[in-house]
Simulated assay, not measured.
Amino acid sequence: MKQSERIGAKIACIFTHNHLYIENALESYNLKGPMFAFLLVLSSKEGCSQESLAKYLNLSKATATRAITALEKEGYIYRERDDADRRIYRVFISGKGRELLPVINDALYKWNRILLSQFSDEEEETFRKLLDKAKDTLMEYDKESDQKHK
């Protein structure tokens, strides 16, 4: 298989460009790596545990802990111990973090416009459907994989 035919290499290229664009756009807010993704998830799933955040974002517990610690240091989130299970921390978005959501969404919107700028409306719709189909296939693969390892 030729390098140019490798789907993974093309996905990696898009991922790398996405990562660099978002990190540059949010640099002045001291958001690095997946930190912005935690804020987006917390905006709709406030109060979830660190572990469930890591699982939802498909990140290791260590990566999630580092990101959450950094976000807390910046004042974008805060943690509280769970009343029922003191081993669990619940994570909440702060007012400062909530103010950042429009900035994050604007950066993501601009990135999407760049990525899709050469697509017709029909091509964009097809591209999105194919990405959803690929994502769903991988989610199902993960679920089956998890069941085999139990």
Rank of each mutant, 00 (worst) to 15 (best):
K2H: 12
Q3K: 14
Q3T: 12
S4T: 15
E5C: 10
E5Q: 15
E5D: 12
G8N: 14
K10F: 11
H17R: 13
N18W: 04
H19K: 09
H19D: 12
H19V: 05
L20H: 13
A25E: 15
L26W: 10
G33E: 04
P34A: 02
P34T: 03
F38R: 04
L39R: 03
L42I: 11
L42D: 05
S43Q: 10
S44K: 13
G47L: 08
S52H: 06
L53S: 03
Y56T: 06
A62K: 01
A64M: 02
T65I: 03
I68S: 01
I68R: 04
T69Q: 09
T69P: 04
E72S: 08
I77K: 02
I77R: 00
Y78S: 08
R79G: 04
E80N: 04
E80F: 07
R81W: 02
D82C: 10
I88F: 07
V91S: 03
F92Y: 15
I93Y: 03
S94R: 06
K96W: 08
K96S: 14
G97H: 05
G97P: 01
R98C: 00
R98Q: 13
L100Y: 07
I104Y: 01
D106S: 13
L108F: 13
Y109A: 08
K110S: 10
N112C: 05
N112H: 14
N112Y: 11
I114C: 07
L116M: 10
L116C: 13
L116G: 04
S117R: 14
S117H: 11
E122K: 09
E123Q: 14
F127L: 14
F127G: 02
F127K: 00
L130F: 12
L131G: 12
D132H: 05
A134S: 10
A134F: 14
K135L: 13
K135H: 11
T137C: 10
M139A: 12
D142R: 09
D142L: 07
S145T: 06
S145W: 09
D146K: 08
K148I: 13
K150A: 05
